[in-house]
Simulated assay, not measured.
Amino acid sequence: MEEFSSYGIAGARVDRIAKKANCNKNMIYIYFENKETLFTTVLQNNLQRVYEEITFTPDDLPGYAVRVFDFAIANPGLYRLLAWYSLEQNTVNLAERTLVQQKKITELMNAQRSGLIGSTFTPGFLLTAIMVLATAWTPINPFGPSYEPNALKMPAETREAVFQAVSLLAKA
């Protein structure tokens, strides 16, 4: 995680990974075949943690956003890893991530149809806006930390602002 979140796929070195893991570099290649598969495994394992620890709740989108906010602040390495994935995604296929995203969008669509949440925004736009708001203050985000550098010095207030913003979005 540390190597890939610091350097991405292209910059990561299996030599350094082997040394930090105190194992043989050749064994890593035997087990994972290549660096891309190792990266994918690391990212998928960490995303699995997200799926298990943060329950998506279309009936409580502000609560979901706050849980994502708390997780993002507590796990900056994962968000760096996701940034590298976004930059280098042509080499990595994360089918499970796509399925999880589609499931969330379907749940939002159903919540809109039932009147549980507003329908001003498409489910994809709404989910994107929620994720952007919830992760805006991670170190890799070019906007949150630069526009409001003191936000993380007052995490309760920032968490509440995320909650309120998503509350408004969910009603629209």
Rank of each mutant, 00 (worst) to 15 (best):
T91F: 15
Q112K: 13
L116D: 09
L99Q: 15
A83F: 06
T128E: 15
T128H: 09
A74S: 12
Q89T: 12
A72R: 03
L78R: 02
A134D: 11
I130D: 05
I130T: 09
T128G: 09
V68T: 08
S86T: 11
F69N: 03
R80I: 01
F71G: 03
S146Y: 13
G118N: 10
A111I: 14
T98C: 05
E88H: 09
Y147K: 13
E88M: 13
I73C: 00
L82I: 10
A151H: 09
G124W: 01
G144R: 07
S119W: 11
A134R: 05
L126D: 01
T106F: 10
P149M: 11
Q101Y: 04
E148G: 15
D70Y: 00
T158W: 07
L126K: 04
Q89K: 13
L116I: 10
L127V: 00
N93A: 04
N93T: 14
N150F: 07
V132T: 09
P139V: 01
L78H: 02
V68A: 04
K104V: 02
T158E: 08
R159L: 02
E157S: 05
P145W: 03
L108C: 05
V100P: 08
K103S: 07
L127K: 10
W84P: 02
A95E: 14
L108N: 00
D70E: 08
E88P: 10
I73Q: 01
N150W: 08
Q101W: 10
G124Q: 15
L108A: 05
G124D: 10
K153P: 06
A95W: 09
V68R: 06
G77K: 08
S146F: 05
S86V: 05
Q89D: 13
I117S: 02
W137H: 15
M154D: 06
P123W: 00
L116V: 10
L87M: 15
R80N: 07
E107A: 08
A95T: 12
F69I: 07
G115K: 11
I140H: 07
T98H: 14
M154K: 15
S114C: 08
K104D: 06
A136D: 03
F69T: 09
S86K: 13
P149T: 03
K153M: 12
A156K: 02
L133R: 04
Y85N: 07
P145C: 07
P142K: 00
W137V: 04
T138G: 00
W137R: 11
P123Q: 04
R97K: 13
T98G: 10
A111M: 13
T138E: 07
P142H: 05
D70N: 06
T106M: 12
L82A: 07
A74R: 04
R159K: 01
T120E: 15
A111W: 03
A83D: 08
T106V: 12
L78W: 01
A72W: 02
F71H: 09
